[in-house]
Simulated assay, not measured.
Amino acid sequence: MLGVKEIMELIPHRYPFLLVDKIETLEPGVRAVGYKNVTMNEYFFQGHFPGEPVMPGVLIIEALAQLGAASMLSLEEHKGKIGYFTGIDKAKFRKKVFPGDTLKLEVEIIKRRGPIGIGKAIAYVDGQKAAEAELSFFIS
């Protein structure tokens, strides 16, 4: 189990943009399972949306990307580097995410060639899919 301190040793993200609170499973370069506890104190709820706070889908995708980056950047050859988005494909948003929800994040690296790869990413709330996408990246 990795907490925020260990996650920040792997990826460069910091408050208020670090969107992974803990990592339960980490297989370097293969897969990762982590969590984001969504609270009413999140900065984005100030404007999205007043009266009905909903986590922006793009930030759910970002949380998944950060988890995938943690998996890739835990490989010895990528330590100290940064993972950059190069594409988002097949993104679907299936369930609204509200304050009080816990996002279970899962990323499996399905294709990798050197510093370039693709991850299959799924976010769940209470066992139901909230979002899914294929995320492509470049490590530099």
Rank of each mutant, 00 (worst) to 15 (best):
E6V: 01
F98I: 07
G87S: 00
K95H: 08
V125Q: 10
F138G: 12
V20F: 14
I23C: 06
I82G: 10
K95I: 03
K96D: 09
R113G: 15
P28Q: 02
L64Q: 07
G119R: 13
E132V: 12
K90A: 14
I11K: 05
L64D: 05
K81W: 11
Y15R: 08
T39I: 04
S136T: 15
G57W: 04
Q128P: 00
G68Y: 01
G68C: 02
K81R: 15
V58F: 03
G87Y: 01
K104Q: 03
H48G: 07
A131V: 04
G117L: 01
V30F: 09
E52N: 15
R14E: 08
Y84E: 14
A70P: 14
K90N: 14
I60N: 03
E76Y: 09
K96V: 03
K90W: 11
M8I: 06
K5Y: 09
T39S: 08
L103T: 06
G83R: 08
F138S: 13
V54L: 09
H13C: 09
K96I: 08
K92P: 01
V54C: 14
G127E: 06
G68I: 00
F17Q: 00
P99D: 02
K90M: 08
G29D: 07
V54E: 07
A69N: 13
K120W: 10
F49L: 10
K79W: 03
K111C: 05
F17S: 03
V58M: 10
V125P: 11
M72I: 14
G114Y: 03
E106W: 05
I88C: 15
S136Q: 14
V125L: 08
H48Q: 13
R31A: 15
L19C: 12
A133Y: 07
T86E: 10
K22T: 03
I23V: 15
G80N: 03
G87M: 02
Y35G: 04
V33A: 10
S136V: 13
E77F: 12
D101M: 00
G51P: 02
E42F: 11
Q46T: 05
I60G: 09
E62W: 01
H13F: 09
F98D: 10
V54G: 12
I23K: 11
F137K: 08
Q128G: 00
G57T: 00
E132A: 14
I109Q: 06
E24Q: 12
N41Q: 06
F45H: 00
F49D: 04
P99Y: 11
F44Y: 08
Q66V: 04
I11M: 04
L10F: 06
A121V: 11
K79C: 01
G57Q: 02
I110L: 02
A32R: 09
E42I: 13
E132D: 15
G87C: 02
L64G: 04
E76W: 02
I61A: 03
F45N: 06
V58C: 11
F49M: 04
E6W: 05
L75Q: 13
D101P: 01
I82A: 08
P50C: 11
A70V: 14
L105K: 01
K5F: 08
V33S: 13
A69L: 02
L10E: 10
E134V: 05
L10N: 07
L67N: 04
A63Q: 13
F137N: 07
L10H: 07
E62T: 04
P56G: 13
F49S: 10
H78Y: 15
K90F: 09
